[in-house]
Amino acid sequence: MTIRLGLQINNFSYGVSGQGDVTDLFPTVVAQAQEADRSGFDAVFLMDHFYQLPGIGTPDQPMLEAYTALGALASVTENVQLGTLVTGNTYRNPTLLAKAVTTLDVISQGRAILGIGTGWFELEHEQLGYDFGTFTDRFDKLGEALQIILPMIKGERPTFSGKYYRTQEAMANPRFRDHIPLLIGGSGEKKTIPLAVQHFDHLNLIVSNVDEIGRKIEVIKARCEDIGRDPATLETSTLVGAIVGENIDRDLVPEEFRDRLLLGSPEAIAEQIKTKVLDAGVNGVIVFVPTQVVGYQPGNITALGEALKPLVSG
Protein backbone atom coordinates (compact mmCIF):
# COMPACT_ATOMS: atom_id res chain seq x y z
CA MET A 1 0.00 0.00 0.00
CA THR A 2 1.16 3.49 -0.78
CA ILE A 3 -0.92 6.47 0.30
CA ARG A 4 1.18 9.55 -0.22
CA LEU A 5 -1.66 11.72 -1.55
CA GLY A 6 -5.29 11.25 -0.53
CA LEU A 7 -8.56 13.12 -0.82
CA GLN A 8 -11.14 13.02 1.95
CA ILE A 9 -14.71 13.96 1.00
CA ASN A 10 -16.28 15.07 4.27
CA ASN A 11 -19.25 17.15 3.23
CA PHE A 12 -22.32 16.29 1.14
CA SER A 13 -24.47 19.40 1.46
CA TYR A 14 -23.60 21.18 -1.80
CA GLY A 15 -26.37 23.66 -1.11
CA VAL A 16 -28.81 20.88 -0.21
CA SER A 17 -30.68 21.11 3.07
CA GLY A 18 -31.60 18.04 5.07
CA GLN A 19 -35.01 18.01 3.39
CA GLY A 20 -33.97 19.38 0.01
CA ASP A 21 -33.53 17.94 -3.46
CA VAL A 22 -30.66 15.46 -3.46
CA THR A 23 -30.57 14.87 -7.22
CA ASP A 24 -27.09 16.39 -7.64
CA LEU A 25 -25.62 15.09 -4.39
CA PHE A 26 -24.00 11.84 -5.46
CA PRO A 27 -23.03 13.07 -8.94
CA THR A 28 -21.02 15.77 -7.15
CA VAL A 29 -19.31 13.13 -5.01
CA VAL A 30 -18.52 11.15 -8.18
CA ALA A 31 -17.10 14.24 -9.87
CA GLN A 32 -14.68 14.82 -6.98
CA ALA A 33 -13.58 11.18 -6.87
CA GLN A 34 -13.03 11.11 -10.62
CA GLU A 35 -10.94 14.28 -10.47
CA ALA A 36 -8.77 12.62 -7.83
CA ASP A 37 -8.62 9.43 -9.90
CA ARG A 38 -7.34 11.25 -12.97
CA SER A 39 -4.89 13.63 -11.31
CA GLY A 40 -2.57 11.39 -9.35
CA PHE A 41 -4.24 10.91 -5.97
CA ASP A 42 -3.51 7.54 -4.40
CA ALA A 43 -6.75 7.25 -2.44
CA VAL A 44 -10.22 8.68 -1.86
CA PHE A 45 -11.71 8.52 1.61
CA LEU A 46 -15.16 9.11 3.02
CA MET A 47 -15.98 9.70 6.66
CA ASP A 48 -17.78 6.90 8.47
CA HIS A 49 -20.55 8.88 10.10
CA PHE A 50 -24.32 8.97 9.97
CA TYR A 51 -24.68 12.61 11.05
CA GLN A 52 -22.61 15.58 9.92
CA LEU A 53 -19.92 16.52 12.41
CA PRO A 54 -19.76 19.62 14.61
CA GLY A 55 -17.61 22.25 12.96
CA ILE A 56 -18.54 21.05 9.48
CA GLY A 57 -22.30 21.40 9.72
CA THR A 58 -25.39 20.50 11.69
CA PRO A 59 -26.33 16.89 12.47
CA ASP A 60 -29.29 16.91 10.08
CA GLN A 61 -27.22 17.83 7.02
CA PRO A 62 -26.71 15.11 4.39
CA MET A 63 -24.39 12.23 5.27
CA LEU A 64 -24.00 9.11 3.14
CA GLU A 65 -23.43 5.66 4.61
CA ALA A 66 -19.78 5.07 3.84
CA TYR A 67 -19.55 1.52 2.54
CA THR A 68 -22.60 1.84 0.30
CA ALA A 69 -21.12 4.99 -1.23
CA LEU A 70 -17.63 3.49 -1.56
CA GLY A 71 -19.05 0.52 -3.44
CA ALA A 72 -20.67 2.90 -5.88
CA LEU A 73 -17.44 4.91 -6.27
CA ALA A 74 -15.57 1.69 -7.05
CA SER A 75 -17.63 1.36 -10.22
CA VAL A 76 -16.82 4.87 -11.50
CA THR A 77 -13.09 5.07 -10.67
CA GLU A 78 -10.14 3.03 -11.92
CA ASN A 79 -6.99 3.85 -9.98
CA VAL A 80 -7.61 5.27 -6.52
CA GLN A 81 -7.75 3.15 -3.42
CA LEU A 82 -11.00 3.52 -1.50
CA GLY A 83 -11.70 3.55 2.21
CA THR A 84 -12.95 5.40 5.25
CA LEU A 85 -11.03 7.88 7.34
CA VAL A 86 -11.94 6.09 9.50
CA THR A 87 -14.56 3.43 10.27
CA GLY A 88 -16.05 3.69 13.75
CA ASN A 89 -15.62 0.19 15.17
CA THR A 90 -18.65 0.64 17.42
CA TYR A 91 -21.07 1.00 14.47
CA ARG A 92 -20.77 -2.56 13.14
CA ASN A 93 -20.17 -6.04 14.40
CA PRO A 94 -16.59 -6.90 13.40
CA THR A 95 -17.75 -9.80 11.23
CA LEU A 96 -20.02 -7.41 9.30
CA LEU A 97 -17.14 -4.97 8.85
CA ALA A 98 -14.87 -7.74 7.59
CA LYS A 99 -17.57 -8.70 5.10
CA ALA A 100 -18.10 -5.09 4.00
CA VAL A 101 -14.42 -4.38 3.34
CA THR A 102 -13.73 -7.69 1.57
CA THR A 103 -16.78 -7.02 -0.61
CA LEU A 104 -15.47 -3.55 -1.42
CA ASP A 105 -12.13 -5.12 -2.30
CA VAL A 106 -13.82 -7.51 -4.74
CA ILE A 107 -15.93 -4.75 -6.33
CA SER A 108 -12.92 -2.44 -6.71
CA GLN A 109 -10.57 -5.20 -7.93
CA GLY A 110 -8.18 -4.85 -5.01
CA ARG A 111 -8.44 -1.15 -4.15
CA ALA A 112 -10.03 -1.32 -0.68
CA ILE A 113 -8.40 0.11 2.43
CA LEU A 114 -9.61 -0.74 5.92
CA GLY A 115 -9.45 2.44 7.96
CA ILE A 116 -10.63 1.84 11.52
CA GLY A 117 -10.77 3.60 14.87
CA THR A 118 -12.60 3.46 18.17
CA GLY A 119 -15.54 5.75 17.30
CA TRP A 120 -15.98 9.03 19.13
CA PHE A 121 -19.15 10.96 18.12
CA GLU A 122 -21.37 10.55 21.16
CA LEU A 123 -24.51 12.10 19.65
CA GLU A 124 -24.65 9.43 16.93
CA HIS A 125 -24.31 6.69 19.50
CA GLU A 126 -27.02 8.12 21.73
CA GLN A 127 -29.57 8.82 19.02
CA LEU A 128 -28.96 5.67 16.95
CA GLY A 129 -28.72 3.26 19.84
CA TYR A 130 -25.04 2.28 19.78
CA ASP A 131 -23.27 1.71 23.09
CA PHE A 132 -20.80 4.52 23.70
CA GLY A 133 -19.19 3.84 27.07
CA THR A 134 -15.83 5.23 28.04
CA PHE A 135 -12.82 5.66 25.79
CA THR A 136 -11.28 2.64 27.49
CA ASP A 137 -14.40 0.60 26.67
CA ARG A 138 -14.23 1.62 23.02
CA PHE A 139 -10.50 0.98 22.78
CA ASP A 140 -10.91 -2.47 24.33
CA LYS A 141 -13.72 -3.20 21.84
CA LEU A 142 -11.39 -2.24 19.00
CA GLY A 143 -8.74 -4.59 20.33
CA GLU A 144 -11.21 -7.48 20.34
CA ALA A 145 -12.58 -6.55 16.92
CA LEU A 146 -9.11 -6.67 15.37
CA GLN A 147 -8.70 -10.25 16.62
CA ILE A 148 -11.71 -11.15 14.46
CA ILE A 149 -11.38 -8.83 11.46
CA LEU A 150 -7.70 -9.36 10.69
CA PRO A 151 -7.90 -13.15 10.43
CA MET A 152 -11.13 -12.98 8.42
CA ILE A 153 -9.73 -10.68 5.73
CA LYS A 154 -6.75 -13.04 5.40
CA GLY A 155 -9.05 -15.97 4.71
CA GLU A 156 -8.83 -17.54 8.16
CA ARG A 157 -11.88 -18.64 10.17
CA PRO A 158 -11.48 -17.27 13.70
CA THR A 159 -13.31 -18.62 16.71
CA PHE A 160 -13.28 -15.97 19.40
CA SER A 161 -15.00 -15.36 22.73
CA GLY A 162 -14.38 -12.03 24.41
CA LYS A 163 -16.10 -9.51 26.62
CA TYR A 164 -17.78 -7.75 23.69
CA TYR A 165 -17.75 -10.10 20.68
CA ARG A 166 -17.87 -13.78 19.87
CA THR A 167 -17.50 -15.78 16.66
CA GLN A 168 -17.53 -19.43 15.62
CA GLU A 169 -15.32 -20.18 12.62
CA ALA A 170 -16.32 -16.86 11.02
CA MET A 171 -15.46 -16.47 7.36
CA ALA A 172 -15.62 -13.81 4.63
CA ASN A 173 -15.85 -15.09 1.07
CA PRO A 174 -15.22 -14.11 -1.66
CA ARG A 175 -11.97 -12.24 -1.16
CA PHE A 176 -9.83 -10.54 -3.79
CA ARG A 177 -6.49 -10.77 -1.93
CA ASP A 178 -5.03 -11.93 1.36
CA HIS A 179 -4.00 -8.54 2.71
CA ILE A 180 -6.18 -5.44 2.69
CA PRO A 181 -4.13 -2.41 3.82
CA LEU A 182 -4.88 -1.31 7.37
CA LEU A 183 -5.08 2.36 8.35
CA ILE A 184 -5.77 3.94 11.70
CA GLY A 185 -6.28 7.62 12.45
CA GLY A 186 -5.27 9.54 15.55
CA SER A 187 -2.21 10.67 17.45
CA GLY A 188 -2.65 9.43 21.01
CA GLU A 189 0.77 8.54 22.35
CA LYS A 190 -0.39 6.02 24.98
CA LYS A 191 -2.84 3.94 22.95
CA THR A 192 -3.26 4.85 19.25
CA ILE A 193 0.38 5.12 18.22
CA PRO A 194 1.41 1.86 19.97
CA LEU A 195 -1.57 0.07 18.36
CA ALA A 196 -0.61 1.43 14.94
CA VAL A 197 2.97 0.26 15.41
CA GLN A 198 1.76 -3.21 16.41
CA HIS A 199 -0.81 -3.90 13.68
CA PHE A 200 -1.19 -1.25 11.00
CA ASP A 201 0.29 -0.31 7.63
CA HIS A 202 -0.59 3.40 7.79
CA LEU A 203 -1.14 5.96 10.53
CA ASN A 204 -3.01 9.14 9.65
CA LEU A 205 -1.96 11.67 12.26
CA ILE A 206 -4.91 13.77 13.35
CA VAL A 207 -3.46 16.88 14.97
CA SER A 208 -5.07 20.16 15.89
CA ASN A 209 -2.05 22.07 14.66
CA VAL A 210 0.53 20.98 12.11
CA ASP A 211 3.29 22.22 14.42
CA GLU A 212 2.69 19.07 16.52
CA ILE A 213 3.73 16.71 13.73
CA GLY A 214 7.48 16.59 14.34
CA ARG A 215 7.11 15.40 17.93
CA LYS A 216 4.56 12.75 16.94
CA ILE A 217 7.01 11.35 14.39
CA GLU A 218 9.62 10.99 17.11
CA VAL A 219 7.13 9.10 19.30
CA ILE A 220 6.33 6.76 16.39
CA LYS A 221 10.04 6.02 15.87
CA ALA A 222 10.49 5.30 19.57
CA ARG A 223 7.52 2.91 19.72
CA CYS A 224 8.78 1.12 16.60
CA GLU A 225 12.17 0.72 18.24
CA ASP A 226 10.47 -0.78 21.31
CA ILE A 227 9.16 -3.74 19.28
CA GLY A 228 11.90 -3.96 16.67
CA ARG A 229 9.87 -2.60 13.76
CA ASP A 230 11.50 -0.57 11.03
CA PRO A 231 9.72 2.83 11.20
CA ALA A 232 9.90 3.03 7.40
CA THR A 233 7.37 0.18 7.22
CA LEU A 234 4.67 2.29 8.89
CA GLU A 235 3.45 4.91 6.43
CA THR A 236 2.29 8.20 7.87
CA SER A 237 0.13 11.04 6.64
CA THR A 238 -1.76 13.94 8.10
CA LEU A 239 -5.10 15.53 7.29
CA VAL A 240 -5.21 19.16 6.19
CA GLY A 241 -7.79 21.40 4.60
CA ALA A 242 -7.10 23.20 1.35
CA ILE A 243 -9.01 26.02 -0.31
CA VAL A 244 -7.81 27.13 -3.72
CA GLY A 245 -8.26 30.88 -4.04
CA GLU A 246 -6.55 34.15 -3.34
CA ASN A 247 -9.33 36.09 -1.62
CA ILE A 248 -10.90 33.63 0.84
CA ASP A 249 -12.03 34.96 4.20
CA ARG A 250 -10.52 32.58 6.76
CA ASP A 251 -13.17 33.68 9.26
CA LEU A 252 -15.78 31.83 7.19
CA VAL A 253 -14.06 28.56 8.04
CA PRO A 254 -15.17 26.82 11.27
CA GLU A 255 -12.74 27.64 14.04
CA GLU A 256 -11.91 23.97 14.69
CA PHE A 257 -10.27 23.67 11.27
CA ARG A 258 -8.45 26.97 10.91
CA ASP A 259 -5.12 25.75 12.29
CA ARG A 260 -4.97 22.96 9.67
CA LEU A 261 -6.41 24.89 6.75
CA LEU A 262 -4.20 26.11 3.90
CA LEU A 263 -5.25 28.82 1.47
CA GLY A 264 -3.90 30.13 -1.82
CA SER A 265 -2.97 28.92 -5.27
CA PRO A 266 -2.37 25.17 -5.74
CA GLU A 267 1.35 25.87 -5.89
CA ALA A 268 1.26 27.94 -2.70
CA ILE A 269 -0.71 25.22 -0.89
CA ALA A 270 1.78 22.61 -2.10
CA GLU A 271 4.69 24.65 -0.77
CA GLN A 272 2.97 25.03 2.62
CA ILE A 273 2.36 21.28 2.79
CA LYS A 274 6.01 20.61 1.97
CA THR A 275 7.22 22.98 4.65
CA LYS A 276 4.72 22.18 7.40
CA VAL A 277 4.04 18.49 6.82
CA LEU A 278 6.50 16.65 4.58
CA ASP A 279 9.63 18.36 5.89
CA ALA A 280 8.53 17.38 9.42
CA GLY A 281 8.96 13.73 8.48
CA VAL A 282 5.46 12.68 7.42
CA ASN A 283 5.31 10.53 4.26
CA GLY A 284 2.15 12.01 2.77
CA VAL A 285 -0.92 14.18 3.07
CA ILE A 286 -4.66 13.70 2.88
CA VAL A 287 -6.51 16.85 1.93
CA PHE A 288 -10.12 17.85 2.33
CA VAL A 289 -11.77 20.79 0.62
CA PRO A 290 -14.28 22.65 2.84
CA THR A 291 -17.07 22.65 0.25
CA GLN A 292 -19.47 23.92 2.89
CA VAL A 293 -17.48 27.19 2.65
CA VAL A 294 -16.60 27.44 -1.05
CA GLY A 295 -18.84 24.86 -2.74
CA TYR A 296 -17.52 22.31 -5.21
CA GLN A 297 -15.34 24.06 -7.77
CA PRO A 298 -14.61 21.72 -10.72
CA GLY A 299 -10.92 21.61 -11.54
CA ASN A 300 -9.57 22.55 -8.10
CA ILE A 301 -8.97 18.97 -7.00
CA THR A 302 -7.18 18.31 -10.28
CA ALA A 303 -5.00 21.37 -9.76
CA LEU A 304 -4.14 20.30 -6.21
CA GLY A 305 -3.26 16.82 -7.40
CA GLU A 306 -0.98 18.11 -10.12
CA ALA A 307 0.78 20.47 -7.69
CA LEU A 308 1.15 17.97 -4.87
CA LYS A 309 1.99 14.74 -6.66
CA PRO A 310 5.60 15.67 -7.51
CA LEU A 311 6.26 16.37 -3.82
CA VAL A 312 5.12 12.96 -2.57
CA SER A 313 6.23 10.69 -5.40
CA GLY A 314 9.08 8.28 -4.95
Rank of each mutant, 00 (worst) to 15 (best):
K141Q: 14
N93G: 11
A170P: 03
T159H: 12
T102I: 03
I149M: 04
H179V: 07
G162Y: 10
T159K: 12
R111D: 01
A100P: 01
G133R: 05
T134N: 05
E169G: 06
I116F: 04
F121N: 02
L114S: 02
E126C: 05
D178F: 07
G155A: 12
L142K: 09
I116R: 02
Q168P: 00
N93S: 14
I149E: 06
F139Q: 15
E144I: 13
Q127K: 15
N93M: 11
A170V: 12
V101C: 07
G110R: 04
G129K: 10
Q168M: 13
S161L: 13
G115F: 04
F132H: 11
I148L: 02
D105C: 02
P158Y: 09
T136F: 12
W120Y: 08
P94I: 08
R177C: 03
H125S: 03
T159I: 13
Q168R: 15
G115L: 06
R175G: 01
Q168S: 14
H125G: 00
F121P: 00
T134L: 03
R92T: 12
G129T: 09
I153W: 09
P94D: 07
Y130H: 08
N173I: 13
Y130E: 00
I113E: 01
L114H: 05
I107K: 06
T159F: 11
K154I: 10
I107D: 01
G129W: 07
L150E: 14
A145C: 13
I116Y: 02
V101Q: 04
Y165W: 11
Q147K: 15
M152G: 05
G133E: 03
T103D: 04
I149D: 05
N93V: 08
R175P: 00
E169K: 14
D178G: 07
F139T: 14
G115T: 02
A100E: 04
T136E: 14
G119N: 05
T118H: 08
L128T: 07
K163P: 00
D137H: 06
F139V: 14
I153N: 07
L97A: 11
R138P: 04
Q127C: 13
I113W: 03
S161T: 14
A100C: 03
K141S: 11
W120H: 04
S108A: 02
L123A: 09
P174V: 08
F139P: 00
T136V: 12
F176A: 06
E169T: 07
K163G: 01
I153M: 12
K99W: 05
A98S: 03
L96H: 10
I149V: 13
E126M: 09
N173Y: 15
F121Y: 13
Q109H: 14
R111S: 01
I148T: 10
G162P: 01
G129Q: 09
D137K: 08
I153E: 05
W120F: 06
Q109Y: 11
N173C: 09
I113G: 01
I116T: 06
T95M: 09
M152C: 10
R157T: 14
F160V: 04
R92H: 13
Q147P: 00
R111H: 05
T118W: 03
K141G: 07
R177H: 07
L96S: 10
G155D: 09
D137Y: 05
G117S: 10
L150R: 15
F160Y: 15
